[in-house]
Design a protein around this nucleic acid. Structure first.
Lengths: 112, 112
DNA sequence: GCACTTGACATAGATAGTCTATGTCATGTC
DNA sequence: GACATGACATAGACTATCTATGTCAAGTGC
C-alpha cells in the first residue's frame, strides 16, 4: 500500500466540504481550505488543486462565496474566501440532501 | 416539492450498491436490481436505466458479475446476474473504502 | 544577483460516471 | 392488430474530478 493512502473526494461532495469548512472558520484562502479539509478529515480526503480552484470559481459565480485578495502571514498574495448568506443556506440544503442519501445507502449496506 | 422526491445516486456508489444487492439476493435481473435498490433505500435512491445497464456492463467486463439469459415469471426474456468470487472481494473493498470516506466526511460535517 | 524552492492561484485536457432521450423486441391484452 | 408493458440497450450531453502544466512572487543559499 502506498505511503499516501489519502483518497479522492467522493464526487459530488466537494462543494459541500468547502462551504462547511468556510462556515466553521470564517475566512480562508484556497490552499488553507484544502489543508483544512485534509487534516479535518483525519488525512483521509485529499483535495487536488485542479479540483479545488474550479470548485471555488463555481461557488463564487453562484454567489455562495465572496473572495478578496490579500496577503498571507508569509506575505504572499492570496485570495480569501468567506461564505455569503446564500452560501450558508446552500450549505444547509446540501448537508440535508447528503444525509438523506447517505442514510439510504447505509440502509442498503446494513439492512435491518 | 415534486411528488417524486427520489434522488440521484451519489456518484461513485452505484457499482457498490449493485454488488451489494446481488450479494444479498443471489440472482436478479437488471430491472429487479434497480427496484431492489429503490425500495431497499426507502425510496430515496433512484436508478435510471441509462445508468444501470452501462454499470452492469462494466461489472460484467471486470468479471465481478456473471450474467445468464433466462425468462421472468411473466415469461419475458431477462438477463440474470450473480456475483462472482472476485465480485464479492470487490464489494468488500468498495464498502471498506466507502466507509472510510464517509466517516471522514462526517468528521468534517460534525467536528468533535 | 542568480538559481532554486515554495506558496498560491490558475487553466487545459482527459476521464469517469451519471442522466436524458430514444430505440428495440417480445409478450400479453383489448 | 393496436397498444401498453417489461426488459434490455445505446448514443449523446453534462458535470465533476483528476493529471499535468504553467505563472508569479517571495524567500533562501551561495
Amino acid at each position: 500500500m502506498s505511503p499516501d493512502a489519502r483518497e479522492e473526494i467522493l464526487p459530488g461532495t466537494l462543494d459541500m466540504l468547502i462551504l462547511k469548512t468556510l462556515a466553521a472558520r470564517h475566512e480562508l484562502h484556497g490552499f488553507g481550505i484544502a489543508e483544512a479539509i485534509e487534516t479535518g478529515s483525519g488525512d483521509v480526503l485529499r483535495v487536488e488543486e485542479g479540483s479545488l480552484y474550479p470548485a471555488l470559481q463555481r461557488l463564487l459565480i453562484k454567489g455562495w462565496l465572496r473572495g478578496e485578495w490579500g496577503k498571507t502571514a508569509e506575505n504572499r498574495r492570496a485570495r480569501y474566501y468567506r461564505l455569503t448568506a446564500a452560501g450558508r443556506k446552500q450549505l444547509e440544503a446540501e448537508v440535508a440532501s447528503y444525509r438523506r442519501v447517505s442514510l439510504a445507502i447505509e440502509r442498503i449496506l446494513s439492512p435491518a
